[in-house]
């Protein structure tokens, strides 16, 4: 894996002429977790899809650049809210989907290692339909890891999970994605307060950075400063609405 670059997005987006977000500047520090927090419909997914190089419903005027000036889309691993597992393929085949889609051989040792890390070694040959929601999400995380990309873009990846499973998945993701430039799009102030080295609040008016708590991520769920940060973020979201 090449070293993780920082990413800067600067520009404005509009849908059918109506502004989606005002001119804004957004920076993802290299090798760190950035949380982009905002209510539904403010354009969080649009920002993430723009960075991925995926089509969006919006027209974007501006630039998206990496600190090393190399193209971004081919260095990205994308994990969406929906686990996007192929229901007809085994857990194993789902995890090595990227290599199969590119016609490359998948690294079997790496696959076995990652399966072990996400705790799914015993489920390698099951179909996704036979797994629980948390297990499916771990398959999606394993697939993202298997891609071994320096930039990881997560679109509300844990929002479908129950609170315990979500906390466990957040910890696993932080551990396994260490050193990569990660963008987590979320509408959950608690998630942003827990996971962001940098926390950005997106509203129609633009992006507002919010000072992150001091503790290392994943911050403990009962860390006082994290809880205060969560409350402050919630207040900020409600004021913007």
């Amino acid at each position: 894996m090449s070293p993780a670059p920082g990413i800067t997005l600067a520009g404005r987006a509009s849908i059918d002429g109506a502004p989606l977000f005002a001119p804004l500047g957004l920076t993802l520090p290299a090798g760190r977790w950035t949380c982009l927090l905002g209510g539904s419909g403010v354009g969080k997914s649009t920002v993430l899809r723009l960075i991925c190089g995926l089509p969006t419903g919006a027209r974007f005027d501006g630039t998206i650049t990496a600190t090393d000036a190399a193209p971004i889309p081919d260095r990205v691993a994308y994990m969406a809210q929906d686990d996007l597992l192929l229901p007809w393929a085994s857990v194993c085949d789902n995890i090595r989907l990227g290599a199969r889609l590119r016609g490359q051989p998948a690294d079997a040792d790496r696959l076995a290692h990652i399966l072990g890390r996400v705790g799914l070694s015993d489920h390698a040959h099951k179909k996704p339909g036979a797994l629980s929601g948390g297990q499916r999400q771990r398959v999606a995380l394993a697939r993202t890891l298997m891609e071994d990309k320096p930039i990881i873009l997560l679109d509300e990846p844990f929002s479908a999970l129950d609170a315990q499973t979500r906390a466990a998945m957040q910890e696993l993701a932080v551990e396994l994605l260490r050193g990569r430039t990660v963008l987590v799009v979320t509408h959950d102030p608690g998630e942003a307060a827990r996971l962001g080295h940098a926390i950005l609040v997106l509203t129609a008016g633009g992006v507002t950075p919010c000072p992150p708590p001091a503790a290392a991520i994943p911050r403990p769920v009962d860390d006082l400063e994290t809880l205060q940060c969560q409350a402050a973020l919630l207040r900020q979201l409600r004021d913007a609405a």
Binding site: R49, C52, G53, L54, P73, D74, V76, A77, Y78, A80, D82, L84, L86, L97, G98, R100, L101, R102, G103, E147
Partner: peptide, 16 residues
């Protein structure tokens, strides 16, 4: 979503 995923994985048209 599946098509988006395969695009981010730089999949070929025929493999997709």
């Amino acid at each position: 979503g599946l098509l988006d995923l395969s695009q981010t994985m730089q999949a070929g048209r025929w493999r997709t």
